[in-house]
């Protein structure tokens, strides 16, 4: 518990000094997987929070059916997909980061996104349509900060140059597409198998 508090304080340092911060997180074991998981879950919750509590003026979300679980997952799954595909491509491209390091970098980088999303959700309840530039501005700041953190973090843990990092990120994209393709393939096959089994069982139960 004390370690978690210490690491949270260290997180603040990482946000403003990403190169040093992520270096120490990797080599001096200052990154905390439990803290990273908490941040990831918070990010999922903020995704739900945003659809539910954005002010009426800015909230054009479809209101007839709202599934908290799928909203939560639609925030988290892209991150997990990114982590896995980045790991699987960088291990082939001389990246020095472990899966654990990538996880910590990706999750720590989400913190500005969470904070600025929270701010925009709260702000959207007290501003009018003409002031929507404020919201867009805050969103851009959060996004830029997030991109900068994750980019510098990946550079540091994999010990890459900037150009190499960009190349691996492109490869990551391809890897992500392949993973999605395999998932779809798997689920459609499983669907076929399930329907086959169920038809067989219905057939058997009807005969005997």
């Amino acid at each position: 518990m004390v370690k978690l508090l210490d690491d949270t304080k260290y997180l603040k340092y990482v946000l403003f000094h990403p190169f040093d911060g992520f270096y120490e997180a990797k080599h001096r074991e200052k990154g905390n997987c439990a803290l990273a998981t908490i941040i990831l879950v918070l990010y999922g919750i903020i995704g739900v929070f945003r659809t539910q509590y954005t002010g009426f003026i800015f909230n054009t979300e479809f209101r007839y059916n709202l599934n908290i679980f799928s909203l939560f997952m639609s925030s988290i799954l892209p991150m997990i997909l990114f982590i896995v595909s980045n790991w699987s491509s960088t291990t082939l491209m001389n990246g020095n980061g472990r899966l654990r390091d990538i996880y910590v970098v990706a999750c720590y980088s989400l913190v500005p996104l969470i904070l600025f999303n929270l701010i925009t959700v709260l702000l959207s309840n007290i501003i009018i349509w003409e002031e929507n530039l404020i919201l867009a501005g805050f969103n851009y700041i959060g996004m830029l900060w997030f991109v900068f953190l994750i980019f510098s973090g990946l550079c540091t843990i994999h010990e890459y140059t900037v150009s190499k990092n960009i190349v691996t990120l492109l490869v990551t994209l391809v890897a992500a597409i392949i993973i999605i393709f395999l998932c779809v393939l798997y689920f459609s096959l499983m669907d076929k198998v399930m329907s086959f089994v169920s038809t067989i069982s219905v057939e058997i139960s009807k005969r005997w």
């Binding site: 009426f56 003026i57 054009t60 007290i126 009018i128 349509w129 003409e130």
Partner: peptide
């Protein structure tokens, strides 16, 4: 305006309220 889902006019009314 909220019942009628009119965000433009809701924004105008909210401006006055605020």
């Amino acid at each position: 305006f909220k019942l009628g889902n009119d965000r433009t006019y809701y924004s105008k009314a909210y401006n006055g309220y605020r």
